[in-house]
Simulated scan of single mutants.
Amino acid sequence: MILEAVMLQVKHGKEEEYEEAFREASKIISSMHGYISHELQRCMEVQGKYLLLVKWEALEDHTVGFRQSKEYQEWKRHLHHFYDPFPEVEHFENVQL
């Protein structure tokens, strides 16, 4: 399992509209092969800042299966116009302790 982590900055005044669009877009990502779960967290200190966490079975489920799919084009259409600056996506793996 890998964790995709994305810090998102939504354009000022667009937060409510973004959250509604994200609810709709959630149907897209949750239907993808290798998807496990996701959550969107709203920052309490910085207006318009969000943290998206997505769990995937494997890195390629996100980077290839989702990112190279027609569903990703729909995801982009719903969400990408809200971001400024455009977010950087990072992937993490669990450290066995």
Rank of each mutant, 00 (worst) to 15 (best):
Y35Q: 07
L52H: 06
E17V: 00
Q9N: 13
E71F: 02
H81V: 02
E71P: 06
F92A: 03
W75L: 09
Y50C: 00
E90I: 02
Q73L: 09
T63I: 14
Y83W: 11
R23C: 03
A21E: 08
H78N: 04
R42Q: 13
K70F: 09
E4N: 07
L79W: 09
H38Y: 12
E45Q: 10
E93C: 06
L53K: 08
E71G: 04
G48M: 04
F66C: 10
M44L: 14
I28F: 06
Q68Y: 09
E88G: 05
Y72V: 09
Y18R: 04
K70D: 14
P87W: 06
V6N: 01
F66N: 10
K27Y: 10
V46N: 12
L51W: 06
E19V: 07
H80G: 02
A5P: 00
S31M: 10
Q9V: 01
V64W: 11
E71I: 02
L40W: 13
I36L: 13
E39W: 05
R42M: 03
K55A: 11
M32R: 15
S26G: 13
Y72R: 11
N94C: 09
D84L: 11
V6E: 04
Y50S: 01
E93A: 04
V89Y: 07
K70R: 13
M32S: 11
H33A: 14
E24C: 01
M7P: 00
E16D: 13
G34W: 07
H81F: 09
T63D: 10
H33Q: 14
F82M: 04
L53M: 12
E45R: 11
F92I: 03
K11W: 12
F92E: 01
R23Q: 10
E71C: 08
Y83S: 03
Y35V: 02
W75G: 05
Y35D: 05
V6Q: 02
K14L: 15
K27M: 06
P85L: 13
N94Y: 12
E88Y: 05
E24V: 02
H62L: 06
E57C: 07
H62P: 05
L52P: 02
F82T: 08
W56H: 04
H38F: 10
S31Y: 14
L97M: 03
V64P: 00
M1H: 10
M44C: 11
K70V: 13
H78T: 00
Y50H: 02
F82D: 04
K55F: 08
N94L: 15
W75F: 15
K76W: 04
Q47C: 07
T63S: 15
W56K: 04
L97W: 00
Q47P: 09
H80P: 00
E16K: 12
F92C: 03
Y50Q: 04
K49C: 05
M44I: 11
K76I: 12
H12I: 08
E16Q: 09
P87A: 04
H38S: 13
T63G: 01
E90P: 00
V64S: 14
E39F: 03
E39Q: 13
P87R: 04
M7G: 02
D61I: 01
I36T: 05
M32Q: 15
K11H: 14
D61H: 14
A58G: 07
E60Y: 05
Y72G: 06
V64A: 14
Y35A: 05
L8Y: 09
E60I: 11
Q96D: 08
Y72N: 14
W56C: 01
V6H: 03
